[in-house]
Computed example of a mutant assay.
Amino acid sequence: MSSPSFEIRGAVGTPTSPRWDRVDSRALIALARTIYFNYLSATPSGLEPVGAVVDLQHGEGRVAFDLPVLLPEEEFVGIELIRGRSPRGRNRCKG
């Protein structure tokens, strides 16, 4: 991987999870799911995204196929948060 041609002061690498202290998590994940499922509806055989970039202030976003560089008002929601947990991972009592 080559080094960037310039640096953005204050930028901290690639996003790994949203800044939970700054967002409404329920609204953020709901909007990310809407963006993801709209993508799936429009392109059922498309590439698999790594997550969604969400702007809660404007209620919009896009799917991301590589880890994105975010604008200050954007959050990255990884695909594992968008899809939710697998039922196989939960303990269920079948009595």
Rank of each mutant, 00 (worst) to 15 (best):
M1Q: 09
T14L: 15
S5A: 10
T16E: 15
P87V: 08
A42P: 00
S25Q: 04
S3K: 12
C93S: 10
A52Q: 04
N91M: 07
S86L: 06
A42K: 15
R9M: 01
C93K: 14
R22Y: 01
R90E: 12
P4K: 12
V50A: 01
S3W: 07
E48M: 07
R22A: 12
F76T: 08
L81K: 02
T14F: 15
Y36V: 09
L71F: 07
I82C: 03
E75G: 03
Q57D: 11
H58R: 15
P44Y: 12
G46I: 04
S25I: 00
P4Y: 04
G78W: 00
M1P: 02
A27P: 02
E60C: 13
L31Q: 11
Y36D: 10
G59Y: 08
L28E: 03
L56G: 12
E75D: 13
E60V: 15
L81A: 08
S5I: 04
I79S: 04
S25M: 01
G78A: 15
I79P: 00
E74I: 11
P18I: 11
Y36G: 09
V54H: 12
E48T: 14
R9C: 01
D55N: 15
K94Q: 10
A42F: 03
I79C: 01
N91K: 09
T34V: 12
S41K: 15
V53N: 03
E7K: 11
R19A: 14
E7I: 09
V53M: 09
S3P: 00
L81Y: 09
I79E: 00
V63G: 01
V12S: 08
A32Q: 07
L81E: 02
A42I: 02
A32F: 04
G89H: 08
G13K: 11
D24R: 04
K94S: 05
L47G: 01
I35N: 08
P18K: 12
N91T: 12
R26S: 04
P15V: 12
A52L: 05
Y36W: 13
V77P: 03
N38D: 15
P44M: 06
W20E: 14
G51Q: 10
I29G: 01
G51H: 07
L28R: 10
L56V: 13
G95V: 13
S5C: 02
R33L: 05
S17P: 00
P4Q: 05
F65L: 04
G78C: 03
G61E: 05
E74R: 09
Y39K: 10
W20M: 13
V12Q: 14
R85P: 00
E74L: 12
R26C: 00
F37K: 14
E74W: 08
R33D: 07
L71E: 15
S45A: 09
R85L: 09
R92A: 06
V54S: 08
C93F: 14
E73K: 13
A32H: 06
R33K: 15
P68K: 01
I8Q: 02
F65Q: 05
G84V: 01
S5Q: 08
I35S: 08
G46M: 09
R33F: 02
V50M: 06
F76E: 05
R22P: 00
P4M: 05
A11E: 14
T43C: 03
P44R: 02
V63R: 03
S86E: 10
F76D: 04
E74N: 08
F65I: 06
R88S: 08
T14D: 01
G78F: 00
V50Y: 07
R19S: 13
P15M: 10
R22S: 06
I35T: 12
V53G: 05
